[in-house]
């Protein structure tokens, strides 16, 4: 049994965790870490019978994910406080959006940078407002800057100087030079509000974006994790709305993403057992190649497909801790006769 196969089976609920041998867990844990799925797996197996060390590790991962999710949502809140006074509307994307909406795929999910979508015409104002509120360019490099502006679908990444967290400001969901040009105005126009007053994409757009991110935009970015997001999103949306698959078809076609969305759905079916309606339940020979690449990890978490060596770089908190929020004027003179310590 391959470790990556076991991981996929455990997530899909096809394999009983109690049936794994103690040493099988080594590979499952390593591959889950490499795919940024360990927290997700820990939640998925919350009630499973596990060897004691695995149960302890998974409890650690669930607790850590709770903290990380709060931190990610706080970044969204800080972006709201920076942009709202200027009347700039923005839509949360990816992990932060799933967490803000408390979607099932958010449980234990690792969240990287804050991704937001801003209408093209508000981009310059958003950039200014964020910089006033303490975000700075990661690199002041004219070439990179021009490259991003001309070719990418987002501003060059900004990092907050106090909190050391990144924000990616998108104005559409695929690079501008991509042959497919999703309807960015519709994405923003049809966004929905969470109870906390944050905006997220509507269900069909969320599924479209997830597929676009994974299939259309580069080489299976996020791999198994994004495919898991897609599986959970469409499964839950379809359970809540019988007409979901039809709407998804229409919406994907409008964005020019029907190929990506259908491929993501078939891959999710083949790996995670997503139930698809008849019109979607097809087979394409090229899917196998995608599937092989999604599963290209050895039992040590290493990528066995050189094209897939998209390691998850951890911006090292060991080398430089994000600073504590030390109030800047710690020793300000306040009372008469009070002297700095």
């Amino acid at each position: 049994m391959s470790a990556v196969g076991a991981l996929v089976d455990l997530l899909a609920g096809r394999r009983d965790a109690a049936a794994l041998g103690p040493r099988d867990w080594d590979g499952v844990i390593s591959v889950a870490r490499a795919e940024a799925l360990l927290g997700t797996l820990a939640h998925r197996l919350n009630d499973a019978r596990l060897p004691a060390p695995v149960a302890l590790l998974f409890a650690d991962m669930r607790a850590a994910a709770t903290v990380a999710t709060r931190q990610a949502l706080w970044e969204a809140e800080m972006a709201r406080r920076a942009l709202a006074p200027h009347g700039i509307e923005f839509v949360l994307l990816k992990g932060t959006a799933y967490a803000a909406a408390n979607l099932p795929c958010a449980a234990g999910r690792q969240i990287g940078d804050l991704d937001i979508l801003v209408p093209w015409h508000d981009l310059a104002r958003a950039e200014n407002a964020l910089r006033v509120a303490g975000w700075e360019w990661v690199k002041e490099d004219a070439y990179d800057d021009a490259y991003y502006r001309d070719h990418m679908h987002e501003l060059p990444p900004l990092i907050h100087r106090e909190r050391d967290r990144m924000i990616d400001v998108h104005h559409t969901i695929l690079p501008r030079t991509h042959r497919i040009t999703p309807d960015a105005l519709a994405l923003v126009g049809d966004a929905v509000r969470t109870p906390d007053g944050l905006s997220i994409l509507c269900p069909t757009d969320m599924a479209c974006h997830c597929a676009a991110h994974m299939i259309a935009d580069g080489d299976l970015q996020g791999g198994l994790r994004n495919l898991w997001d897609f599986h959970r999103l469409v499964t839950d949306f379809a359970a809540a709305d019988r007409g979901f698959w039809g709407k998804l078809d229409e919406r994907a076609e409008m964005h020019g993403l029907e190929g990506s969305v259908h491929r993501a759905a078939r891959l999710a079916r083949d790996l995670y057992g997503t139930k698809l309606p008849s019109g979607w339940n097809r087979h394409r020979p090229r899917d196998e190649r995608y599937q092989r690449r999604l599963l290209a990890r050895d039992g040590w978490g290493g990528a066995t497909d050189p094209l897939l060596q998209q390691a998850f770089y951890i911006r090292s908190h060991w080398l430089r801790m994000p600073p504590l929020m030390l109030a800047r004027h710690l020793w300000t003179k306040w009372r008469k006769g009070h002297h700095p310590i």
Binding site: R70, Q71, L330, W331, T332, W334
Partner: peptide, 21 residues
């Protein structure tokens, strides 16, 4: 002691401040 540590449960951030904060 001379400092006050504030933990913000929304942001999970620690702030270290002194008077008059």
């Amino acid at each position: 002691g001379e400092l006050t540590a504030i933990f913000d449960r929304r942001s999970m951030q620690t702030h270290l401040v002194t008077q008059p904060i």
